[in-house]
């Protein structure tokens, strides 16, 4: 349970090196390190650091994505053992994501899915051009905490309102929080359609989701 091992884990995430991260995860298991501790003291520290670096302009989108991929690779190795021990990393929350009906632009939505997934949220990604009915059905099915609707175009932004209205009609809110994002989205629009929040980028989305869950930091 050496500190250098945790340091190397953190480093593998910052470097965005999935092979290295997976190797270190395996090493941890082989030497009897608690997988949950490997996440909390090693890998998760790395992803938080990467997010901070991105936030202050030191890291860029390709770096952030590589860090998220490395995180995913480490979790893939650790998760079976965590399941076995019954010490699965507690999800920060369940999030249903998709782009608004008629909108096929998904770079932003995919970034949010990757970063929030790597940070401990359980993501149910419905893909592009998702109808309000599909959002509602998935939300009920997985008992989601948050629904995120992305729209790039001013013409498809109305679809965000349609999802929120559908969640309301089905009596899912206020328990389920609705968040929106997209290039044309403003705080004014978010307020107008009764969204619980909006964010400008994936890192802000992470903060937003954590605060909606009442959790400031990654916990196990």
């Amino acid at each position: 349970m050496s500190d250098p091992l945790f340091g190397a884990m953190l480093q593998s995430i910052i470097e965005g090196a999935p092979d290295k991260a997976a190797d270190l995860a395996q090493q941890a298991l082989d030497s009897g390190v608690d997988p949950l501790e490997a996440v909390n003291r090693g890998f998760a520290v790395g992803i938080t650091f990467a997010g901070d670096q991105f936030g202050c302009g030191e890291m860029f989108l390709p770096d952030l994505l590589a860090s998220a991929e490395a995180m995913k690779a480490a979790m893939k190795v650790l998760e079976p053992e965590m399941l076995k021990r019954g010490s699965q990393r507690e999800a920060l929350g369940k999030i249903v994501l998709g782009t608004a009906r008629g909108d096929i632009h998904d770079i932003g939505k995919n970034l949010v899915a990757t970063i929030l997934g790597a940070s401990g949220f359980q993501i149910f990604d419905l893909g592009t051009s998702v109808t309000p009915e599909q959002f509602v059905a998935k939300t009920k099915e997985v008992d989601a905490d948050i629904v995120g609707v992305s729209a790039l175009l001013t013409t498809t932004m109305a679809g965000q309102k349609a999802v929120i209205d559908a969640l309301d009609r089905n009596g899912l809110r206020p328990r389920v929080k609705a968040i929106i994002g997209g290039a044309a989205v403003t705080s004014k629009w978010a307020a107008e359609i009764g969204a619980d929040g909006f964010s400008r980028n994936a890192i802000d989305a992470l903060e937003l989701a954590k605060s909606l869950m009442g959790k400031g930091t990654v916990t196990a």
């Binding site: 860029f60 390709p62 590589a66 991929e69 770079i107 970034l111 403003t186 705080s187 980028n201």
Partner: peptide, 29 residues
């Protein structure tokens, strides 16, 4: 493309990454 190793390896050479003197942020951020 954002996930390709080529993207990460080459974007710094292909693009000048300006300091915060240059404003490219989205409105509201």
């Amino acid at each position: 493309f954002l996930k390709l190793k080529e993207t990460r390896a080459l974007f710094r050479q292909e693009q000048h990454l300006p300091s915060a003197v240059i404003d490219r942020s989205a409105r509201g951020s």
